[in-house]
């Protein structure tokens, strides 16, 4: 339509700045990371910088430490994410029930708090709260006769602690997204279904769940990306330890790039991680969107 035609200049005026910013903060660093990953590039030995083709990638793909960190990251993902979704769904269903408007408003506001807490602060809180000797958690356990637990110094407990904090921080996110999904179910369909059956599961499975799928896919994509990038909380809480019990992939990349200063290998690790994230996102979209309403 001629009347709604927008001049090319106006178009560029609106989207140009966004493209420039995206290029500056996203594309250029990515291209530079790929360039770096093809070089021996160590910040403590810049004089010997050289192009080494795919040697860094070969190193990363055959490095046990990299795959061990990747394995730990996936274990975190497949344990924390289902818990977050299950708890989030329970909270969303409770908040979706009619009545108690004021309480639900307060709850919804309260749900934002964990998400609004800085990751690094969550880790520092964990250090204090879960300290074996002086932590409030062990003190409370002591009231019910449970002996102090070594939360941070024991490899298994430290891993559980990371899962706990991740669930604490991100369950509200799942709850709010799913609650938004539940509000999209037309009232008449839901009411008709409830006349047909008293089973909440049947209503959930056949009426509500189809409307929740887009939100679930969004949760899975965002939380998967977030888990793969999880750094601040673990760094301040355990620094990847004890041993390497909580050395997730992002901690390994940071360690390689900024503590061992091997930017070449760290960039290769980051590029491989990016590829894995993209593939996972595509898998989610293809599998779950097929079942959409």
């Amino acid at each position: 339509m001629a009347g709604s035609a927008v001049s090319r200049r106006t178009l560029w005026g609106f989207i140009g700045p966004a493209i420039l910013v995206l290029a500056a903060v996203g594309i250029v660093p990515l291209v530079y990371a790929v360039y770096t990953s093809l070089h021996y590039f160590n910040l403590t030995n810049l004089k010997d910088q050289e192009f080494i083709w795919f040697a860094n990638y070969a190193h990363v793909l055959t490095d046990d430490t990299f795959w061990a960190a990747m394995g730990r990251t996936f274990i975190l993902l497949v344990t924390a994410l289902p818990i977050q979704i299950a708890l989030g769904l329970m909270i969303a269903l409770l908040l979706h029930r009619p009545g108690l408007t004021f309480l639900k408003t307060i709850t919804r506001l309260g749900l934002v708090l964990p998400m609004a807490t800085t990751y690094a602060v969550v880790g520092l809180l964990g250090q204090v709260m879960f300290n074996i000797k002086y932590g409030v958690v062990n003190q409370m356990l002591g009231w019910v006769g449970i002996a102090p637990i070594d939360w941070i110094g024991d490899p298994d407990n430290a891993f559980v602690l990371v899962i706990f904090w991740d669930v604490w921080q991100w369950t509200p996110f799942c709850a709010l997204i799913l609650l938004a999904g539940l509000t999209t179910v037309p009232d008449e369909i839901e009411e008709a279904a409830r006349l047909e059956t008293k089973s909440w599961w049947t209503v959930l499975r056949h009426i509500q769940l189809p409307y929740l799928v887009p939100g679930l896919v969004a949760i899975m994509i965002l939380r998967t990306a977030d888990t793969l990038k999880l750094f601040d909380m673990v760094f301040t809480l355990t620094r990847g330890g004890p041993g390497n019990a909580t050395e997730f992939i992002s901690l390994l990349i940071q360690r390689t790039g900024f503590r061992s200063f091997d930017q070449g290998v760290a960039s290769a690790q980051a590029v491989v991680l990016l590829a894995i994230t993209v593939v996972l996102s595509q898998i989610y979209i293809r599998i779950f969107y097929r079942e959409g309403p």
Binding site: T44, N45, P155, G241, P242, G243, N244, E247, R255, R259, S260, F261, D262
Partner: peptide
Amino acid sequence: FAEWPEISEVVQQYGTQMMLGE
């Protein structure tokens, strides 16, 4: 020497694993 930070990371990893009995 310049390589200590990198070596230190290795010592930190295996040193802790030793202490944990892993």
